[in-house]
Design a protein around this nucleic acid. Structure first.
Lengths: 138, 138
DNA sequence: GCTTGACCTTACCATGTGGGTAAGGTTCAT
DNA sequence: ATGAACCTTACCCACATGGTAAGGTCAAGC
């Protein structure tokens, strides 16, 4: 199986498969006489593993660790869970940041007239932020 | 005002201020006889504008546009609003992706025993994904 | 005046996950 | 034999930011 077929079989690009090999995620595969990379079914499984982990947002460094654990019969699921929990924490952190951005953007947009005039609540806020949500009367 | 004071006054790093100048976000400032960048109060306002826009996740390219609009008395708030809405859409897109990751990660983690054994629902799922949520009986 | 430390300058490299391109070799079918 | 489709390596690019190195400048203290 050449790299193009491996790419199609896994949903990765040939470019990225080479990149993963060069980054040490994959052992260098066998090569044909002409130097073409040859992929065995086992290699395809590893590539699919990488792809699924990428979809979940794991970094290549994380994936290198997860692959090592996967291939180690003496692995401890405790370590795996820690990696996943750490990553989940980072995802949640980013969710919070994006949520804060979204809130502010929505409020700014809602206050912008968009009547073609020069007055603009968005620019005003960026120039000198005003409290967007009135503090609840205390 | 030297760049270090400008950095402290705006919350940016000196490094980034130079980068913004080099990227064309800022007009090159005046220089002292020795070549030190000199920041006027107006420059500080621009830097603060940039910082607030970065906090909201706008790209440097977006910010360049917003700055130009801000400084243009003939601006139309319609354009500003479009830029903000486009960015909001991207933020919402990323929020969705991260939310999907979070859901899957949480379910995988919940199914992982973490008892120090080799059996691991997380690795199992990455190796060959199983439906994590049982489809509602149909 | 000289030293010292804190500041400034430019120029380069690195990050991480890809995409693009160029110049060349290989394979296979016609 | 030729052409299309594939493969190879080796580059450059994005994006925002950090780091480092090698050197110039300024102000304070001795």
């Amino acid at each position: 199986m050449n790299i193009g077929q491996a790419a199609e079989a896994t949903g990765l690009s040939a470019k990225m498969i080479r990149h993963y090999e060069q980054s040490g995620l994959l052992q260098p595969t066998q090569r044909s006489a002409a130097g073409y990379r040859q992929y065995q079914p086992k290699d395809i499984e590893i590539l699919k593993f990488i792809r699924r982990a990428r979809v979940l947002g794991f970094s290549l460094a994380d994936i290198a660790g997860l692959l090592a654990l996967w291939q180690n019969p003496q692995r401890s699921n405790t370590v795996v869970k820690q990696v996943a929990q750490q990553h989940l924490a980072e995802v949640e952190q980013k969710l919070q940041e994006l949520h804060a951005m979204k809130q502010t953007l929505q409020q700014m947009i809602a206050q912008c007239a968009a009547d073609g005039g020069a007055h603009c609540a968005i620019l005003q806020h960026l120039a000198k932020p005003q409290p967007l949500i009135k503090p609840t009367r205390s």
